[in-house]
């Protein structure tokens, strides 16, 4: 206030705040409408999730900050963060959240939104491609090992085709091409 009085021009300052009006106020509702996202609102920033997380110490955006950023509407920052992809999906944060916020599930929701915008790390995209093309993440290559143990060389009942068909029709197909 005191700045305003005498120097009525824009205050001279080094602080360069984030202008809230440039953020996306719908982001929180977008997440709340996604699987297990509804309890997002309950977060009271206690930071338990970050305390529980084994790798947050490595992160610029800690789990509680990601949740805070969602609530504030920092959609671009969250969806383009490396953190959502490094998340181990270990559910420690979610398990300990005292407000029932499904933190890990929400991070999954963020990854899905990021994927919708094509923001997927190359190696993860590669796994998507592999699922689309071969219908499985791992294929039996050393069937002699199986035979040595008395197992059938081919996995009984295995059929990778249905998965390929399914993923051609869903986002994976759109993401890695080959979809229609």
């Amino acid at each position: 206030m005191s700045e305003a009085g005498e120097h009525s021009t824009t205050p001279v300052t080094l602080v360069d705040p984030i202008d809230i009006s440039t953020l996306d106020p719908h982001f929180r509702n977008e997440i709340r409408s996604m699987p297990n996202g509804d309890d997002l609102y309950a977060c009271f920033a206690c930071t338990t999730c970050t305390a529980a997380c084994p790798i947050a110490c490595q992160w610029t955006y800690k789990p509680h900050q990601l949740i805070r950023m969602i609530l504030l509407g920092m959609r671009n920052e969250v969806l383009s963060s490396k953190e959502i992809w490094e998340c181990l999906t270990c559910f420690q944060c979610q398990e300990r959240c005292p407000q029932g916020v499904r933190v890990t599930d929400i991070i999954f929701d963020c990854k899905n939104l990021a994927a919708e915008e094509g923001l997927v790390p190359e190696n993860i995209l590669g796994l998507g491609r592999q699922l689309l093309e071969s219908g499985q993440l791992y294929q039996v290559t050393a069937d002699w090992e199986r035979e040595d143990l008395g197992l059938e060389p081919e996995v009984p009942g295995l059929d990778p085709e249905p998965m390929k068909a399914i993923l051609h029709g869903t986002r994976t197909g759109r993401l890695v091409g080959g979809g229609d």
């Binding site: 206030m1 305003a4 602080v15 705040p17 984030i18 809230i20 509680h64 805070r68 504030l72």
Partner: peptide, 27 residues
């Protein structure tokens, strides 16, 4: 951090958000 009146009757409020370690500006 500060409250600055604007010409349109609103106030610009700058806040330090300690959870994000960021400054935020609200109208």
């Amino acid at each position: 951090s500060r409250v600055v009146p604007r010409d349109d009757g609103r106030l610009d409020v700058v806040i330090y958000d300690s959870l994000l370690d960021q400054y935020l500006q609200y109208e």
